[in-house]
Design a protein around this nucleic acid. Structure first.
Lengths: 331, 331
DNA sequence: GTGAAAGCGCTAACAC
DNA sequence: GTGTTAGCGCTTTCAC
């Protein structure tokens, strides 16, 4: 049994109210009492119960952060941004890893509600109908990352996926490429079609004849292996745009296994700019998202929501192209 | 304000005690009452307060998991193993990312204590003296992953690092290599010296003259770049053993930039077998740790501790070499 | 089978 | 400046 505030009160010869005041750093405590209470706390190794405090205050000082899959190196940066922002406002984060399982995502949502967290951030990407119903009736401050709900009632933090797709395609078109392959992510994710829209827009704006082929991936390493089938039937030069960097790593691996040289024969452009992107062989050209800012912004939005502000609609963050070695002139 | 048990009781015309019984699935409830209560719960969208329940029961159903750095792809698998095991016993995980900051690690330990978690798992690697003092007096069930405390009072889950280092070196020696470079991790981690010990043991057991050079890395991509300095002064063939896979990726990148071919000129062997290892170019030969099992085992150990069992000492998990394409004969 | 009531550890009026 | 007290939402004897 941990020591309680009553134990401390008894030991220092004051009431529990005074101990509580010391705990809050209230100025209405005499120096003598203050000292005795602090001594008792130290001697007893007392630590106030967050559980009791939460019950009394009707707030827990915790935020839930649900992440599609912590295995995807895209997410840890979001987590860091959220953690740092939360720490600044004296809150802590309960991180929930849905492990790519929508049921688990909903189960966690339920759990967080039961734990009476002060707010929830969902960094999910793909929202099913069930999610929509559940989330739009969510009884706690809620912010989405890289996903949004119809109606814009739930505030969301997004990257400018369309502009990103456009930047990637523009870059390849400028290099003289006229055959583009897009390895997409799972169709449920909104970002997938937005990035593809951007690619299409860039092609439409170009004055050359450009072909685009879309291959469905899964957003993971395995999805990138679709590049193998592409490579087996196409003659270079051509260029591959992937839904994200992890897919690009898979694609580059497939090309490597077939002895195809990047970028001499085939160019590859990713999306996200994960830490690894600068270290692939060759280093990956990619569209950078400000992942850290997304996490931070989501937490700050929760704070505004809690302060009574009526935040709705999307906050769209800019992206930018990072040119490395995996993309080169078509020849 | 969320609805409370009292609201449900009023609505269904029973006492809160009966509602509570329904919540627990107690058999001592009449069918009629059961039905009315369930209806009221559904109509009100009632969800019991985990906070109040925790205060009353004196347990929270949560486990804290502190991780050195969630950015390191080694950890997510541990998280998954822990999450799955926790779910099986009806608990949930509060994941804390120390972001490579020992102070933050201690701050989280404090926080978890305050939140009255039922147990704490620390997957840290490098323990400072302050950690030792803090952890050996930790007033809550505690299990370490990939680290251990002097005295063996705190149970720990470890990989057989020494055997892993030996397996990596043996493999290279069999391939005919006589010049080994070890790019280590930060010296504070115990695993670092154990893996190196294994390498040395393999060399000692060999009947050929083998040289070993140790270069200190940081366990991250940047640390692997030390391979550049090595490559600039050494003539192939030689072989590099890295502290972990992330370091190996950095090293392979440095070699690639210098135009050195792997494994024709230089062999590289990693440690961990992260998901990415099968997708580097060339695919990485590495020593696999059973990361998922480590997370699972840690949670199971917490459960045993909580049931009153006196678990101490280390549980060492076997590792095994996975031969891929980054290692080849010395020539 | 059901209800009354006490109490988990804390905070926040409210009195003095 | 300090103490008394009520109560946050739940569970759990103890009666009946």
């Amino acid at each position: 049994m941990p020591t309680t505030i009553t134990d401390v009160a008894a030991r220092s010869g004051v009431s529990s109210a005074t101990v509580s005041r010391v705990l809050q750093g209230s100025p209405r405590v005499s120096p003598a009492a203050l000292e005795r209470v602090q001594a008792a706390i130290a001697e007893l190794g007392y630590r106030p119960s967050g559980v009791a405090r939460s019950l009394r205050r009707q707030q827990t000082g915790t935020l839930g952060l649900i992440v599609t899959n912590i295995n995807n190196p895209f997410y840890p940066e979001i987590v860091r941004g959220a953690e740092d922002a939360a720490q600044r406002m004296g809150a802590s984060i309960i991180l929930c890893n849905a492990a790519e399982d929508p049921e688990r995502e909903i189960a966690y949502l339920d759990l967080l509600l039961e734990r009476r967290v002060d707010g929830v951030i969902v960094a999910a990407g793909g929202l099913t109908k069930r999610h929509e119903d559940f989330l739009s009736a969510f009884p706690s401050p809620l912010v989405l990352i890289n996903a949004d709900l119809p109606g814009g009632q739930v505030p969301a933090v997004l990257s400018d996926d369309e502009a990103g797709g456009r930047a990637a395609a523009d870059h390849l078109l400028e290099l003289g490429h006229t055959r583009l392959i897009h390895i997409s992510g799972p169709a449920v994710r909104e970002a997938v079609s937005l990035r593809l829209d951007g690619v299409r827009a860039a092609i439409a704006a170009s004055d050359r004849a450009v072909t685009l082929e879309v291959v469905e991936g899964d957003g993971y390493l395995a999805g990138g292996l679709a590049a193998r089938q592409v490579a087996e039937r196409l003659q270079p030069p051509y260029a591959i745009i992937t839904h994200n960097d992890v897919t690009a790593v898979g694609a580059m691996h497939a090309l490597f296994e077939l002895g195809i040289r990047i970028p001499d024969e085939v160019s590859v452009v990713g999306f996200d700019d994960i830490a690894l992107a600068a270290f692939t062989n060759p280093a990956l050209t990619t569209v950078a998202q400000d992942k850290y800012a997304m996490g931070r912004l989501a937490v700050e939005t929760i704070a505004r929501l809690r302060s009574g502000e009526a935040v709705t609609g999307n906050q769209v963050l800019p992206v930018h192209l990072v040119v490395r070695r995996s993309s080169g002139p078509a020849r």
